[in-house]
Design a protein around this nucleic acid. Structure first.
Lengths: 186, 186
DNA sequence: GAAAAAAATTAACAAATGATAAAAAATGAA
DNA sequence: TTCATTTTTTATCATTTGTTAATTTTTTTC
């Protein structure tokens, strides 16, 4: 998905504002396995995914995956982006990726100069917020197998592209539990 | 907490922009038990809490509380605010409250006219997003008693002001489980 | 302050999920 | 293809959390 479409998909922008954003974007490619973003560092960029798949995980005793990002989605360490604080997530590429890089610093300048871009940034945060809120509520209401079925329904392609260990931790269960759930559904 | 302080606390605003917001705000009072906002309706307003305490819950077989709001916080049906869609939450007053009401429609006008207000709205969503993300991650990492201890540490006053049934459902466990956890901690 | 109602705790058992280990299946490299 | 490695499944047992019901404590109302 190319940058113009990605930007518009977040929130429709006037041509001039969109160009201002596009002019600050650099295209780059990384291969599967690359660690794009390290936990406990302030990350000075955000990325839009042109092609590929990534995951965000937090490291404790084990790795806990809490987000998958694919074509059209935005890779962002919220703590860095919002508070200039080190984030808790590491971003790993699960497939070869083509990305668009945008310096947070430049984006902030644009936020202050252009009301359309400010509202675009607002819409971005609001939409992410709704997604996160829905996941939290799904967590509160649904047991593990219901959450698995929900994921199968909403993002079936993830099950093809991601290994089950990552899916399990995304769902908040162990891989063994996920295997059991899958066996029961057969 | 008065409206000027609430607005600045979300994100510092130039005096003129702050006044523009304040001019659109109406103060009102409701008593404990009042249902401010009904699930499955598009809610045309947002509210800032001057004084009091509320909870947001979703109704299934049982009521599941997923948010508490107190002085200085914002009551908002994200689905209504962002997408003009009916929200899933009902808001109930747990104490007598004094609120500031702001019509979403007027706020949207201000977002398009004033870049400071647009960025204020952006910051609001971003901060809410970080809070929600942190709760989701806490859910993924911590078991019930760890989440209870975390709540005791971060919001001890809630345990004084809210009955344990609501706390339990906020933590994603039954009231009986919460009692058991509290007994074990003694 | 007594009675009634609501909230919180306790107990006993059921169900779901976790932990560990071993086996089977799938994937990748030579 | 074959061998080695990684991933997934299966099995067993432990732990956590849920469910139901009874009891105790606290709060509210008269």
């Amino acid at each position: 998905m190319d940058i113009s479409k990605i930007l518009d998909h977040i929130h429709q922008l006037p041509e001039q504002s969109k160009l201002a954003l596009q002019n600050n974007v650099t295209e780059m490619a990384f291969s599967k396995g690359h660690i794009l973003l390290k936990a406990n560092k302030v990350e000075p960029n955000i990325y839009f995914i042109k092609k590929g798949l990534v995951r965000a995980y937090v490291e404790r005793d084990n790795e806990v995956t809490f987000w998958f990002g694919k074509e059209g989605e935005t890779i962002i360490s919220m703590k860095s982006y919002v508070e200039d604080q080190p984030g808790y997530e590491t971003i790993e590429l699960l497939e070869d990726c083509e990305l668009y890089e945008l310096k947070t610093e430049n984006l902030r300048k644009l936020f202050n100069e252009d009301v359309h871009i400010a509202n675009w940034g607002r819409k971005f945060a609001e939409k992410e917020l709704i997604k996160t809120e829905e996941r939290l509520i799904s967590r509160q209401f649904k047991n593990a197998s219901e959450r698995y079925l929900e994921l199968m329904k909403d993002h079936p392609e993830l099950l093809q592209r991601v290994q089950l260990g990552h899916i399990a931790s995304y769902l908040g269960i162990t891989q063994v539990s996920l295997s059991r759930i899958r066996a029961e559904l057969k």
